[in-house]
């Protein structure tokens, strides 16, 4: 090709905003790395556990952004995958603890076994549910994903063997390649590593051929069909990928809390994840991380102040939607 390819590699956004985005990203990474030190410095080491939970939710929010923000698929049942991932880990631990078996398997508490297992099981369940849900679109899709999540919610409520309504506790955290995850700081960094790895993966996917098709689906499905793309398959793969990310998050959550319950799959949880994504900026992948920190941080602060914090948070959300047209990431990093 004689055409100069150098100019073809220029991104659609101007360089200044690229630089700004990099600075913000770098600052964010440094902040994540420094949080335990800050917590210790402030004499509040218990905050490390709080930040760990923020990080874990951020993973689920990023994975939701993959389908919601990039693919334009508004799933209102994302917490189901979060909960399912958590339950796989807790059930594996349950069997390992009391030496019983599930289908002949004695359970495990090794992270390198049960975390991938949580991801795989969740992906397997998400596949048929996604296949059915994606037959619909728009508002129907919102509602059917919600309904399937409710179905899984009731499933765990009714399985009394694994605690039913009351949930299922884990005696201790998983071991990671034999190493103990009991130490709060170690576990925090493990979670941050997962967040960074998952977000990097999602960012790569967004730029890839697959990501271009997925982004095209959001902008005009009709165009993608006319280009000869069987969009259903791409959306389904994205749906399963996003579920897998949420499962990882749920697996970490089970370890953080050493407890899982049907509440992890509750629809309010799905709503919160959506809030994080939108608050942070849909389709930006990094924004939802900020969204998770801000939403959970505000919840934390308000709940320390008053028991009726939702009286304030609810209207805040409404105001945000009505008046803010782009998320935090857009305001801070200038994207979109």
């Amino acid at each position: 090709m004689p055409a100069p390819l150098a100019s073809a590699q220029l991104p659609a956004t101007p360089p200044a905003s690229v630089a700004r985005r990099r600075v913000v990203l770098l600052a964010g990474c440094l902040l994540l790395a420094a949080l335990p030190a800050i917590a210790h410095g402030a004499g509040q080491p218990f905050l490390i556990a709080t930040f760990t939970r923020f990080v874990i939710y951020a993973i689920a929010a990023v994975s939701l952004d993959l389908i919601l923000g990039i693919g334009g698929l508004t799933s209102f049942g994302h917490a189901a995958w979060f909960g399912l991932g958590g339950y796989v880990v807790a059930i594996a631990a349950f069997h390992a603890q009391d030496a019983s078996t599930l289908l002949g398997w004695g359970g495990s508490t090794e992270a390198l076994v049960v975390w991938p297992l949580a991801i795989a099981v969740t992906a397997l369940v998400a596949l048929p549910i996604g296949a059915l849900s994606l037959r619909t679109s728009g508002i129907h899709f919102i509602m059917i994903t919600l309904a399937f999540a409710q179905m899984l919610f009731y499933l765990f409520v009714s399985v009394k063997f694994y605690g039913g309504d009351d949930g299922l506790a884990m005696q201790r955290r998983n071991t990671l390649a034999g190493a103990d995850l009991r130490d709060a700081t170690v576990f925090y960094y493990v979670c941050v590593a997962c967040l960074v790895a998952w977000t990097t993966l999602c960012a790569a996917i967004r730029r890839s051929r697959f990501g271009m098709v997925l982004s095209g689906c959001r902008q005009s499905e009709r165009r993608l069909l006319a280009l000869g793309y069987p969009v259903y398959r791409y959306k389904l793969v994205a749906f399963v990928l996003a579920a897998a990310g949420a499962a990882l998050s749920g697996a970490l959550w089970a370890n953080a809390a050493r407890f899982v319950s049907p509440d992890m799959l509750a629809w309010v949880k799905s709503g919160e994840l959506m809030v994080m994504v939108i608050l942070g900026g849909t389709g930006t992948l990094f924004g939802p991380i900020a969204g998770a920190f801000v939403l959970l941080g505000v919840e934390q602060l308000l709940s320390a102040w008053t028991e009726h914090w939702m009286l304030i948070l609810g209207p805040l959300l409404v105001l945000f939607v009505v008046f803010a047209r782009r998320g935090l990431w857009g305001l801070v990093a200038g994207e979109r």
Partner: peptide, 9 residues
């Protein structure tokens, strides 16, 4: 187009 890693741009 099921390629997930290389930068398409």
């Amino acid at each position: 187009s099921f390629r997930f890693f290389a930068d398409a741009r």
